[in-house]
Design a protein around this nucleic acid. Sequence first.
DNA 1: TATAGGATTGACGTAAACGTAAAAGGTGCG
DNA 2: CGCACCTTTTACGTTTACGTCAATCCTATA
Lengths: 154, 154
Amino acid sequence: MKLVSPGEAAANTNDIPAEAGEEFVRIGEMAKKYGVTLRTLRFYEDKGLLNPHRDGSTRLYTRRDKARLKLILLGRKVGFSLRDVKQMMDLYDPTGTNTKQLRLALDKSENQLARLQKQRALIDDAIGELSNSMSVVRQMLVERTAPAQASAAG
Amino acid sequence: MKLVSPGEAAANTNDIPAEAGEEFVRIGEMAKKYGVTLRTLRFYEDKGLLNPHRDGSTRLYTRRDKARLKLILLGRKVGFSLRDVKQMMDLYDPTGTNTKQLRLALDKSENQLARLQKQRALIDDAIGELSNSMSVVRQMLVERTAPAQASAAG
DNA sequence: TATAGGATTGACGTAAACGTAAAAGGTGCG
DNA sequence: CGCACCTTTTACGTTTACGTCAATCCTATA
């Protein structure tokens, strides 16, 4: 009747009606486990990305919620907006082949990949310009700290 | 007594008290010339980044303003915030060597360069993960569109 | 029972850089 | 004269993903 696997977080003694062997986790555990804040989990729920069970008012996360959260975090990592993530998740149907979902995901991924590559190009550009500017500034500083050298060389 | 060089924008006939040969430009010209909106120029002024002269209430930009705007745009391009840009610009002193300004700029630039490189790494990471995911999804789609092949091979 | 530690909802705050009306004034041209 | 065009100021709206209180509640433990 444990909420979490043994060895982890021994501060929970709540009796929760877990008829089957489902591992329920409360928000604090969930947050720690995935390195997010409580606020984040509630926010995701508010946006319809998560749907934990409830024991009264207390949120209880199952491994399905964990799987969803993992997907969300992966999506965020590769730069999808939460809206995109939700759109893709909403297409999930446990009884079907999810072809639509997969196609949408692939489609969005292609766009996102393009965006990322553009961003990369922009950043490379910025790095280039910044490096140039830095050279110039360094040179100006040199001329100001050693003006005798400069005029001697001129 | 022209506001702009001949051949450009022949719609200005305002008489402006330009005693010297200073080229004054109004906000519309300025915006076009640098590819920004009027709102942007006013916004930059509001933030203390620009300080055009006035003919009554009409803004008049000189080449000093142009130089400043160029710097702002360069700063933005390499990822500085307007606040950073202002901080650096505020140190400019036409009578001194501006060593402080240059040092600050260099300092900020180093930080910014580091940030850009981190971002680049993150993006590369994201590209990698996204590409992986795409492969997986593609594979899943293949298995769904040609299940006979898969079961035949199994 | 007091206290510390979670948990809840609600709601405003934050960052950046403008966009977008709204309402009004000035101007040259036909 | 009136329209078209440029300009002005003021000020709220937008975007995204949460942060940060605030007030309250529940619970196990010493």
